[in-house]
Design a protein around this nucleic acid. Structure first.
Length: 480
RNA sequence: UCCUCCUUAGCUCAGUUGGUUAGAGCAUCUGACUGUUAAUCAGAGGGUCUCCCGUUCAAGUCGGGAAGGGGGAGCCA
């Protein structure tokens, strides 16, 4: 019987009226003792259910509280009021689940994002979070569709890993050893992992890239899309301890191919979401616009959310080298007037957030791809350029978010790679399996990592990354 | 981890130079009204002023500490 229900999205989309239908959902508001705004999560829009005066017992009407779950059967008719095309004239109303209005935390009023974060288990039932997580879903689906259509193999890389050589960040330890101090010790007093579950020290993965490279040396084109973990004590609006990352790895690609792929990819999934979640994005755009109005004029962004997304879909990203970026920053009035907290003086230092923001938001006013960074500030696996000073790396910087993609052409030359590993004190034995790709049939290849939540932030316009993942994990927070 | 701001009703916030019974809007409850769009109108209930210590005749208000939260920075995706 539950299968007979029609989803509110389908009901509102159809032009048909004067037919019987059954809907189920959660009450958002009950106005005038007569009008129920009902939402079932299929769309941001509510269905107006009309419980005509005198036709329902007081005992039922009293239970139509915000948050209650109900089943309604009735006739779909052209709305007698303004504000919606159709409405459902209720014949029967069944309460599936009561919601005590005095205790239910969500009220028919505006709530702060901070408050909703404290009740993350209920925030799906708000307009804002409904829209965010429908968009998140569409983006995830579009990612698979994009790569599938291009013939990529979706590779499941391990979540538990023994490799700690990648150096992407602090790791969460995985162990079954007792924590009460009774764990077996080595002669030097350090903990012996010989009797641990895996017989060695293991962690949660920080990246699937190295394993991804192994598969790319067989399938040519692969991608990963899964959770990754960083135990960094980061307390910012763009870091999580558990986040999802997309990592394509492609054989026979150089840095330029890599940039082309990343750009095409980002455009494709944004476009997909704009087509599939028009109403959600319009709602989020309006929400953002109202939020912007609260800010002082100087802090407001020039473009609305939809304009920004359209702009990204229709315009090429700006591409320049690290060296060119340093020149622009050094010669900028901002630098000369000493408005940067960290002044740009010479070549070789890593860019600070303020510099990236200046390039993206002030100078170019569009997404920027920076390439060929100094080797000393980048990872060991990035391909050394002919100048001997820089590597074939690329970072994509997005307005308002900063770094959204980090990628590179990989060092496929065995000697050069092991040389870099020596310089950075990475023991060869630990990555012997990785080096086999360079020993047997090595080929030029490239790939990148894209932080999924940062992308969702960019598309939804949400300022805090904790609001674009259902149950965020960050320092001192793992509730729900 | 560092810098900075904040913590008063269910939520969002006022609260004067320290002063006696701590306020508003929304929400909730009760009633009225009935084609409403976060309905409207009237009334009611609702407080360990985050916690601990101190200064003072007297602390929501001043000082110290702790916890939690926001924003920024670093690390990065």
């Amino acid at each position: 019987m539950f299968n007979k229900r029609i989803k509110i999205k389908a009901l509102l989309a159809g032009d048909k009226v004067n037919f019987d239908a059954t809907v189920m959902g959660w009450v958002r508001t009950f106005r005038n003792n007569q009008f129920i705004a009902l939402n079932d999560g299929s769309t941001n829009n509510n269905l107006q259910v009309v419980a005509s005066l005198g036709e329902f017992d007081e005992s039922i009407l009293k239970r139509l509280t915000t948050g209650a779950c109900i089943k309604v059967t009735g006739e779909v008719i052209a709305s007698l009021g303004k504000g919606q095309k159709v409405e459902l004239k209720a014949a029967t109303i069944e309460i599936l689940g009561d919601s005590d209005a005095e205790k239910f935390p969500l009220q028919p009023k505006k709530h702060s994002l901070e408050f909703l974060r404290e009740i993350a288990h209920l925030r799906f039932r708000t307009n804002t979070f409904g829209a965010i997580f429908r968009v998140r879903h569409s983006l995830a689906f579009a990612i698979h569709k994009f790569f599938n259509d291009k013939g990529f193999v979706y590779l499941h890389t391990p979540i538990i890993t023994a490799s700690d050589a990648e150096g992407a960040g602090e790791m969460f330890r995985v162990t079954t050893l007792p924590l009460d101090g009774s764990a077996p010790k080595n002669e030097d007093g350090s903990i012996s992992f010989k009797d641990d579950f895996f017989g060695r020290s293991t962690n949660l993965t920080v990246s699937g890239q190295l394993e991804g490279e192994l598969a790319a040396m067989a399938f040519s084109d692969i991608y990963t899309f899964g959770p990754t973990f960083r135990a960094e004590n980061s307390n910012t609006t763009r870091h999580l301890a558990e986040f999802w990352m997309i990592e394509p790895e492609v054989a026979f690609n150089d840095l330029e191919d890599n940039m082309n792929l990343a750009e095409e990819f980002i455009r494709y999934i944004i476009k997909y979401a704009m087509e599939s979640n028009k109403e959600d994005l319009e709602f989020l755009a309006q929400r953002l616009e109202e939020e912007e109005k609260q800010k002082p004029q100087v802090e407001r962004t020039e473009m609305g959310l939809l304009d920004k997304l359209n702009f990204v879909v229709n315009n090429d990203f700006e591409r320049l080298t690290y060296t060119e970026a340093i020149e622009i920053l050094k010669e900028s009035n901002h630098n000369k007037k000493k408005k940067f907290q960290y002044l740009i003086e010479g070549w070789g230092v890593d860019l600070q957030s303020e510099h990236e923001r200046y390039l993206v938001e002030k100078h170019f006013k569009k997404p920027v791809i920076l390439t060929n960074y100094p080797k000393d500030i980048k990872s060991f696996y990035m391909r050394l350029n002919d100048d001997g000073k820089t590597v074939a790396a690329m970072d994509i910087l997005a307005p308002g978010i900063g770094e959204i993609v980090g990628g590179s052409q990989r060092e496929e030359r065995f000697d050069k790679l092991t040389q870099r590993m020596k310089e950075m004190h990475i023991p060869e034995e630990e990555l012997s399996w990785y080096l086999d790709t360079r020993r047997f049939g090595a080929c030029p290849h490239a790939g990148f990592g894209l932080g999924f939540e940062r992308l969702v932030q960019f598309v939804t316009g949400m300022g805090n990354i904790r609001d674009v993942i259902p149950f965020p994990r960050y320092p001192k927070s793992a509730e729900f």
